[in-house]
Amino acid sequence: MTLPKINRILLKLSGEVLMGQGQFGIDPDTCDRVAREVKAATETGLQVCMVVGGGNIFRGLAGAAKGFDRASADYMGMLATVMNALAMQNALEKLGIDTRVQSAIPMASVCEPYIRRKAERHMEKGRVVIFAAGTGLPFFTTDTTAALRAAEMKCDALFKGTSVDGVYDADPKKVPTAKRYDSLTFSRVLADDLKVMDASAVALCRDNDIPIVVFNIRDDGNLAAVLRGEGTATIVRNQP
Rank of each mutant, 00 (worst) to 15 (best):
24 F>C: 12
24 F>T: 11
24 F>E: 09
24 F>A: 13
24 F>Y: 12
24 F>K: 13
25 G>K: 00
25 G>C: 08
26 I>Q: 01
26 I>M: 02
26 I>G: 00
26 I>P: 00
26 I>C: 02
27 D>P: 01
28 P>D: 06
28 P>C: 05
28 P>A: 12
29 D>R: 12
29 D>L: 06
29 D>M: 06
30 T>Y: 02
30 T>M: 13
30 T>I: 11
31 C>S: 12
31 C>R: 07
31 C>P: 01
32 D>G: 08
32 D>T: 14
33 R>K: 12
33 R>W: 01
34 V>A: 09
34 V>T: 08
34 V>R: 00
34 V>G: 03
35 A>T: 12
35 A>Q: 08
36 R>P: 01
36 R>K: 15
36 R>I: 05
36 R>T: 08
36 R>Y: 02
37 E>P: 10
37 E>S: 15
37 E>G: 13
38 V>M: 07
38 V>E: 03
38 V>D: 04
38 V>I: 15
38 V>Q: 06
39 K>V: 13
39 K>Y: 08
40 A>Q: 14
40 A>N: 13
40 A>E: 13
40 A>G: 14
41 A>G: 14
41 A>D: 11
41 A>N: 08
42 T>P: 03
42 T>R: 13
43 E>Y: 08
43 E>T: 13
43 E>V: 11
44 T>A: 07
44 T>P: 01
45 G>R: 05
46 L>I: 07
46 L>E: 01
46 L>W: 00
47 Q>D: 05
47 Q>W: 05
48 V>T: 13
48 V>C: 07
49 C>R: 08
49 C>A: 15
49 C>I: 05
50 M>F: 04
50 M>V: 15
50 M>W: 01
50 M>G: 11
51 V>W: 03
51 V>R: 08
52 V>C: 09
52 V>R: 09
52 V>Q: 04
53 G>A: 12
53 G>D: 04
53 G>V: 15
